[in-house]
Simulated scan of single mutants.
Amino acid sequence: MKGKTIFLGILGLILVAMIGAFAYYGGFTKISPEIIQCGGETLVYEKMTGDYAQSAIVSDRVYQNLIDDHGIETTKGFGIYYDNPKTKEKSTLRSDVGCILETDFDKLDAIRADFEVSEYPLGEYLVAEFPNRGMSSVILGIIKVYPALERYVEENGYESDTPVMEIWDVPNKKITYRKQLIKRG
């Protein structure tokens, strides 16, 4: 009887720890997409073809190069994902991955020698936010946010196969998702 009680106690502790971790990484966060006027950021990036799971490696490479070669430290990374991984082969997925430049705009010419540089278009986007507390938040965000964005566009007459931008805001500990909006014709 004592062994059974200990086993149930340990099982209970594991369950509480799992629920706590799920909550900490954003598992209980309510996703409320809304249309917001935004954009205008200066993007420094590499074009990437292949599995979106490689985004962190590319983002880190851009970040480190900006520090090492240009003396610029950024606080926001991003990925713009052009293809739906449910309908395209992983090896053909297209994205732009890098950092958002918030200072040192006088160094853009030198940066262009190493990376692509562009300004993200101003416009109305479908936007949702999610906590960023590590890789588990990124995974939970994919699981929770993308379906909420898809539901919104389907229910409101927008195209579903449009690019999504993720902004990984380190100081504010959040991930912002922006979906391009195009009305169905």
Rank of each mutant, 00 (worst) to 15 (best):
F130L: 11
D109S: 12
L66T: 06
K174T: 14
S137H: 03
S118Q: 10
M135R: 09
G79K: 05
D69G: 03
G77C: 07
S160R: 06
I100L: 07
I14M: 15
G3T: 14
L108P: 02
N65R: 13
P163W: 12
T74H: 02
V16L: 15
R184Y: 01
C99E: 15
E41F: 01
I19A: 13
E73F: 08
A110S: 14
S32P: 00
Y25T: 13
L93G: 05
I175P: 06
S136T: 04
R151P: 00
R151K: 12
L122C: 01
S32L: 10
K76Q: 12
T42P: 02
L108M: 13
A21C: 12
T176A: 08
G27E: 06
E159R: 06
M48W: 09
I36K: 15
F7P: 02
T42D: 03
A23S: 13
F28K: 08
P131Q: 08
E119D: 13
G157L: 03
F28H: 07
D114Q: 10
S95R: 03
V145L: 07
I36C: 00
V127S: 11
L126R: 08
Y45T: 05
E166P: 05
I100N: 04
I72F: 12
I57L: 14
S55W: 08
P121M: 13
E46T: 05
A53G: 07
F105L: 11
L108E: 15
G98F: 04
I143P: 00
G9K: 01
E116W: 01
I100W: 04
Q180P: 00
G50Y: 03
V164E: 01
S59L: 14
G39I: 04
E129A: 08
L15D: 06
G20W: 09
F7T: 09
S136Y: 02
R133D: 01
K179L: 07
G50F: 04
I36H: 04
R151G: 00
G134T: 11
E116L: 02
I6A: 12
D169T: 07
K174P: 10
P171L: 12
G50A: 07
D96N: 14
K107S: 12
S55M: 12
H70G: 07
S32W: 00
Q180G: 00
E116Y: 06
A113C: 00
Y177H: 05
G157E: 02
M48L: 10
L15M: 15
R94G: 05
K76E: 13
F115N: 02
Y146I: 13
L101T: 03
E34M: 11
G9S: 13
T103S: 11
P33Y: 07
F28S: 12
D68Y: 07
S59N: 15
